[in-house]
C-alpha cells in the first residue's frame, strides 16, 4: 500500500476514534448540565403534573439508564441516523444540521473575505502613507474595530443601518415568503458579514501594516527602488508578497475566531446557521441536535485538517506524509 494511502487510512481511523470520544464527552456534559429536554419544554407558568412529565420522559427515552441511552444513540449514529430533534417539528437531525452549515459558511466566508480584502488594503495603505493623515485615520479605525465588542457593533450596526436608515433588512437570510433572489440574499448578508468582519479587518490591518513597514525597510526593497522599479511594483510585488507571510498565519487563526463571532451574529440577525441552531438547541436541551451538530462539526474539522496536511505535502515537496 502506498505510504500516502496508509497515512490517510491511519488518520481516518484516528478520526473515528476522536469522534467517538467527542460523542461520549458531549453526551456526559449534556447530562451533567441542569435540566433535560422535558424541563426545557415545560412552561413554568403553566404547571404540569409530574405524571405528565414522566410520560414525556418515557416518550423521549429519557427514563432509560445513561449507558442504554448512549448506546442506542451510537447504534443509530453508525447507520447515519442521528435521531430526531426533540423540539416542535421533530426534524431528523442530520438533514437539519446539514441545512444549517451552508448559511454559516456563507456568512463566515463573506465576513472573512471582506476582512482580508479590507484589512490588507488598509494595512498596505497605512504603511505606504506612514504617519500621514490616511495612516492616522486608518489606525484610529483599526483601534476602534479591535476594541469594540462584537455584541456592541452588532447591535449598533443593526440599529443604525437596518432600523434607522433602513438600508438593509433587520434579520433572516431571505425575505420570508418571497421567492429566492440573489439580490435579496446579498441584502440580508451584507450587514452581518460586514459586522462580523470588523474586528478581523482591524487585526489584519494592524498586522499587515507592521509587517509591511518591516519589509519596506529591507535591503532588497531599497535595491529595487535604486534600480528604478516603479513604486507600485515595489510595494505590490516585492514588499507585499513577503509581508503577507505572517498575515496568512493570522488569517488562518481568524477562521477559528470567526466561528465564535458567527454564533453571536447569527443570534442577533436570526441568520439560520449552525450558531443559531446550537443556541436554540442548548436552550431547549435538545440532546440529539446538540450531539449531531457536535459530531458533524467535529467530522468537518478532522476532514479539513487531513486535507490541509495533504495540501501541505502537495505544495511543499519537503513535507512527506506517511
Amino acid at each position: 500500500m502506498p505510504p500516502k494511502a496508509k497515512f490517510i487510512i491511519k488518520r481516518l481511523l484516528a478520526g473515528v476514534a476522536m469522534l467517538l470520544g467527542l460523542s461520549v464527552l458531549v453526551f456526559l456534559l449534556l447530562r451533567a448540565a441542569p435540566g433535560d429536554p422535558v424541563d426545557a419544554y415545560i412552561n413554568p407558568s403553566a404547571a404540569m403534573s409530574p405524571q405528565d412529565l414522566a410520560a414525556l420522559r418515557t416518550r423521549f427515552g429519557l427514563d432509560q439508564p445513561l449507558p442504554v441511552q448512549y448506546l442506542a444513540w451510537l447504534r443509530a449514529a453508525i447507520t447515519g441516523d442521528l435521531g430526531y430533534s426533540l423540539q416542535g417539528t421533530g426534524d431528523a437531525v442530520l438533514p437539519l444540521v446539514l441545512s444549517h452549515i451552508g448559511p454559516t459558511m456563507l456568512l463566515m466566508g463573506a465576513g472573512i473575505a471582506l476582512a482580508v480584502v479590507l484589512g490588507i488594503s488598509g494595512g498596505v495603505l497605512g504603511a505606504v502613507r506612514r504617519n500621514g493623515v490616511v495612516d492616522l485615520l486608518l489606525s484610529v479605525v483599526a483601534f476602534l474595530g479591535i476594541s469594540s465588542p462584537a455584541f456592541l457593533t452588532a447591535l449598533v450596526g443593526l440599529y443604525v443601518f437596518a432600523v434607522r436608515l433602513r438600508l438593509v433588512p433587520t434579520g433572516a437570510m431571505l425575505t420570508p415568503g418571497a421567492p429566492f433572489a440573489l439580490g435579496d440574499l446579498l441584502a440580508h448578508l451584507i450587514l452581518p458579514a460586514v459586522l462580523l468582519s470588523i474586528g478581523h479587518t482591524a487585526l489584519i490591518m494592524r498586522y499587515t501594516r507592521a509587517s509591511m513597514l518591516e519589509v519596506l525597510n529591507a535591503d532588497y526593497v531599497r535595491t529595487a527602488r535604486a534600480k528604478g522599479v516603479p513604486e507600485f511594483s515595489v510595494v505590490a510585488r516585492h514588499a507585499l508578497r513577503n509581508a503577507l507571510l505572517p498575515v496568512v498565519t493570522l488569517i488562518g487563526s481568524t477562521i477559528g475566531l470567526a466561528i465564535g463571532g458567527a454564533v453571536f451574529i447569527e443570534s442577533v440577525f436570526n441568520w439560520p446557521g449552525m450558531g443559531l441552531l446550537m443556541v436554540t438547541a442548548v436552550r431547549a436541551r435538545d440532546y440529539p441536535v446538540i450531539m449531531g451538530a457536535a459530531l458533524v462539526i467535529g467530522a468537518f474539522v478532522l476532514l479539513l485538517n487531513l486535507l490541509t496536511d495533504l495540501a501541505y505535502a502537495a505544495v511543499d515537496p519537503r513535507i512527506k506524509v506517511g
Binding site: A181, G183, D184, A187
Partner: peptide, 15 residues
C-alpha cells in the same frame, strides 16, 4: 456593491 445589495431587495419585497 452596496447599491446592488440594497436595491435588489426591492423586487423581492414588492410582492
Amino acid at each position: 456593491l452596496l447599491l446592488s445589495a440594497t436595491g435588489l431587495t426591492l423586487p423581492a419585497q414588492a410582492q
